[in-house]
Simulated scan of single mutants.
Amino acid sequence: MIRIAVIDGQGGGIGATVIKRIKEVYGERVEVWALGTNAIATSQMMKARANRGATGENAVCHCAGRVDVIVGAVSILLAHSMMGEVTPAMVNAVGASKAHKLILPLTQEPLTVVGAGREPLPHLVDKLVVEHLARHVPPGAEPA
């Protein structure tokens, strides 16, 4: 079974949307870890049916090296993003992790991802879960 870490902060809405879709498609064939930069984000992702949850810098740093896939908005790669919730240590842990990173081109930071189209969140999440995540899920756990 693969472990997928979903990292989100602030209100946890993007992470919760991603987790709901992962669970719709793969159910309990994958283990999803909700890693929130704050307690509200973690709580929202747990309500979306994550298997495990943890909050804060140490949780992100500790867990980043223990998962197979990391999912999040591009902000998880930018120190001090999400109004300062993403610390340099978190960015370093995500970057140093051997996990495959599936990054959504969404941010409130002054950043433009050249070549990334502006699609609604549900469309981006569908592509992430059905097209890209499927490559990392073992045989027998394909999307429904």
Rank of each mutant, 00 (worst) to 15 (best):
M1Q: 10
M1A: 10
M1E: 07
M1V: 05
M1D: 11
A5R: 09
D8Y: 04
D8L: 07
G11R: 04
G12H: 13
G13M: 08
G13V: 00
I14K: 00
A16R: 06
A16W: 08
T17E: 11
V18N: 04
I19S: 05
R21I: 12
E24D: 15
V25S: 09
Y26H: 10
G27R: 15
V30E: 08
E31G: 01
W33R: 07
W33K: 00
W33D: 04
G36T: 07
A39C: 01
I40E: 11
I40W: 06
S43Y: 09
M45T: 12
K47I: 03
A48K: 11
R49G: 01
R52F: 14
A54F: 07
A54L: 02
T55H: 01
G56D: 03
A59R: 05
H62L: 09
H62E: 14
C63V: 15
C63N: 06
A64I: 03
V67L: 08
V69Y: 01
V69D: 02
I70L: 09
G72Q: 06
V74R: 06
S75C: 02
I76F: 07
L78S: 00
A79I: 02
H80N: 15
H80E: 15
H80A: 10
S81N: 08
M82K: 13
G84P: 02
E85L: 01
E85M: 10
T87P: 07
T87Y: 08
V91I: 06
V91D: 01
V91F: 00
N92S: 14
N92C: 00
N92E: 12
A93L: 02
G95V: 09
A96Q: 15
S97T: 08
S97A: 15
A99M: 11
K101E: 09
P105L: 05
P105R: 15
L106R: 13
T107R: 05
P110K: 13
L111I: 11
L111T: 08
T112H: 12
T112K: 14
V114G: 00
G115W: 00
G115K: 05
A116H: 09
E119S: 13
P120L: 08
L121W: 08
L121V: 14
L121A: 10
P122Q: 08
D126R: 15
D126F: 00
L128G: 03
L128P: 09
H132K: 13
L133E: 01
H136W: 14
H136A: 04
V137F: 03
V137A: 12
P138D: 04
P138Q: 05
A141E: 03
P143D: 07
A144C: 01
A144D: 04
A144R: 15
